[in-house]
């Protein structure tokens, strides 16, 4: 009995040893592996959560063409075809200079505004060899209102047309489903309508995305205004939307209580209340063009 057992044992150990060999080579790979830093990708699907900037940039060497379209208020009735007659648009280009720096140019029909922007990723969320819990970007925008002067007879300065936005964007991709972002914002207007309107307005943006499927996400954004003492009692904007991705395009469908597309407009000049039916429906289409091909 004992003899048989021992022979079996020897037999087994030989089979076991050879069987383990391939696994042994795999272990060898594991043992000699050096840890690498893995940067988080696709925190958001595009460069905007709904209308506000997200921490995403166009990829290095990629030109993004963004067509944004927003109709008038839904509660304007049949005469305006529930807002369809009063659409505003913005055409914009964004370019990824490298992995961190992006430049943008755009023109909105709202107040015939030209905008230029710079967005820079300071920190990138990562795991592995180097752990960074959040991605931190800084965004600055300049806006040029090109409407005819309201009072052309008096002396007007070009600087009066200008306003600026500065934002810190702090985002974390918690999981493949959930990403959240905080966006402390300051808007400066060189010229304001009345004495009661402040030149500097502070706001805090809170936004996020929730992934519904591989290609569809639900996005929401809210900007809390800390400076509300304005002549026209502007409201805080609420923006809700869906991102739908189809290959090279991303479609964003959204409802908001604000019509403009650029930061000064939608953060500080929202006139409508979502809960009173002042709903604007709109969509963005963004298309990516690879200008500079990476070396494979």
């Amino acid at each position: 009995m004992k003899l048989k057992l021992i022979i079996w044992l020897i037999g087994f150990s030989c089979v076991f040893a050879t069987g383990l060999h391939a696994q042994g080579l795999m272990d060898l790979l594991d043992e000699t592996e050096e840890p690498v830093t893995e940067y988080t990708y696709a925190t958001f699907k595009t460069t905007r959560i709904v209308s506000g900037q997200s921490i995403e940039n166009p990829h290095s060497g990629v030109l993004l063409f963004v067509i944004s379209h927003r109709f008038g208020r839904l509660n304007t009735g049949a005469y305006e075809l529930w807002g369809l007659d009063q659409s505003t648009i913005r055409l914009g280009f964004e370019y990824g200079v490298n992995d961190r720096l992006a430049l943008g140019l755009g023109r909105s029909s709202f107040e015939k505004t030209y905008d230029g922007s710079v967005k820079y990723k300071i920190l990138r969320q990562s795991s592995g060899a180097r752990v960074m819990p959040v991605t931190l970007s800084v965004f600055t925008g300049i806006y040029v209102n090109s409407l005819h002067w309201r009072e052309p007879d008096r002396e007007n300065y070009f600087s009066s047309r200008l306003s600026y936005a500065g934002q810190l964007l702090i985002a974390r991709k918690f999981s493949n489903t959930l990403s959240l972002q905080l966006s402390p914002t300051m808007i400066h207007k060189n010229l304001v309508e009345t004495e009661r309107d402040p030149n500097d307005i502070y706001a805090l943006g809170i936004g996020g995305r929730f992934r519904l499927s591989n290609r569809i996400t639900f996005n929401a954004e809210y900007f809390h205004l800390f400076t509300r003492e304005t002549a026209r009692n502007f409201d805080s904007p609420i923006l809700l939307g869906f991102d739908i991705e189809t290959g090279g395009h991303v479609f964003q469908l959204h409802i908001t209580n604000t019509q403009p597309f650029f930061e000064r407009g939608f953060i500080t000049e929202t006139k409508s209340n979502l809960f009173e039916g002042d709903i604007y429906f709109g969509f963005n289409i963004s298309r990516a063009f690879t200008i500079r091909k990476p070396k494979l």
Binding site: T18, H21, A22, L25, M26, L29, E38, Y41, A42, H59, S60, G61, V62, N176, N214, R215, E245, G247, G248, A288, T290, K293, P294, L296
Partner: peptide, 30 residues
């Protein structure tokens, strides 16, 4: 292992590089 002929590979999927960055993102995400 040139003695036994055993042979293993390991491929980190995130390390595939595409010409179009968006494709790379979709490859990994979807």
């Amino acid at each position: 292992n040139t003695e036994t002929g055993e042979f293993v590979f390991r491929v980190v999927m995130r390390s595939f590089n595409f010409e179009k960055a968006l494709m790379q993102e979709h490859f990994n995400e979807n």
